[in-house]
């Protein structure tokens, strides 16, 4: 228990105790940590916070709909090699020069333990997680062109985020440590706001949070405002010099919280 650093959140990132447990177990058992949660609950930020807290380098891999698993391992740049052979640049006989490691490959080859973020894994093709099963299990892969096996010097801390757009395969889920970031309750939200606006008045914050949670509870709001929208909203209110008295009975800058036209109109009608 003493031979690894404990993650306890950072100054800029407040983590619930359950999330801390999940992170710590994933770091210590060297298994990928899969994070799900509403947009804006800080899934991506978590990986950066882990890197900062554990003082490890940070590598991120943003997955898009066209991303292939192979790209994360390595790419053999044949076109560059062909080009070099034609114009006589570089050493064409050494294929190794043209093997470019992807984020996963880089994190394996790194001399020290790193934090690897695989962001929005559900964006990619359905087979994408399955294609990475072996590599994440063994933390090694084989480069056919140079007959070399890349094995992780230190198993990286792998953090994977998902918005649940697609269901992930069972075999993949079974290998992960899973945590669902619930929407923060008021007490935790106060801590989070405190990080961004340390000097905010208590009375004002109570008013703001009351209004914020009220908006989230309205059934007609289709896209519920998240933490990041709350932070933006408080920023706007502060810049406009609002205090608790001014906020009484008013609902300024609603557009910062609600991004859908229909939501905005619905709430405005309710408020007035």
């Amino acid at each position: 228990m003493s031979d690894f650093n404990l993650f306890a959140g950072t100054e800029g990132y407040i983590a619930s105790s359950e999330l801390r447990d999940a992170v710590n177990v994933s770091v210590s058992l060297e298994r990928p940590l899969l994070i799900r949660g509403e947009p804006g609950t800080g899934k991506t930020l978590l990986a950066k916070a882990i890197a900062e807290a554990l003082q490890m380098p940070f590598i991120s891999w943003h997955v898009k709909s066209t991303t292939k698993a192979q790209e994360g391992l390595y790419v053999y740049d044949t076109v560059q090699r062909l080009n070099d052979s034609r114009f006589g640049d570089g050493d064409v006989s050494n294929i190794e020069h043209y093997i470019k490691l992807g984020p996963l490959g880089t994190s394996f080859e790194a001399p020290e333990r790193v934090v690897l973020l695989i962001d929005e894994i559900d964006k990619a093709d359905m087979e994408f997680p399955n294609d990475l099963l072996h590599e994440l299990d063994e933390m090694s892969f084989y480069i056919r062109e140079t007959d070399r096996t890349v094995t992780a010097k230190q198993r990286p801390v792998v953090v994977i985020t998902s918005n649940a757009e697609k269901e992930l395969p069972d075999a993949f889920l079974r290998r992960c440590i899973f945590h669902y970031i619930d929407f923060p309750d008021e007490a935790l939200m106060r801590q989070i706001v405190d990080v961004h606006f340390p000097k905010i008045q208590d009375e004002l914050l109570s008013q703001i949070l009351m209004k914020f949670y009220w908006v989230r509870e309205q059934p007609e709001v289709r896209k519920k405002p998240s933490t990041s929208e709350l932070i933006d909203w408080i920023g706007a209110l502060k810049r406009a010099g609002m205090d608790a008295a001014a906020l009484q009975g008013a609902f300024p800058f609603l557009g910062v919280l609600l991004k859908k036209e229909a939501d905005l109109q619905g709430i405005q009608k309710k408020v007035s």
Binding site: M1, S17, V25, L29, I177, F178
Partner: peptide, 28 residues
């Protein structure tokens, strides 16, 4: 069990609760 062996539950039921959930339950 491996996680428990490494002392992750801190001999507390609260920690055991979140630990077991993170490892055993994969869907909210």
């Amino acid at each position: 069990l491996e996680a428990l062996n490494k002392g992750h539950a801190h001999e507390s039921l609260d920690h055991f609760y979140s630990l077991a959930r993170a490892i055993l339950v994969k869907k909210p």
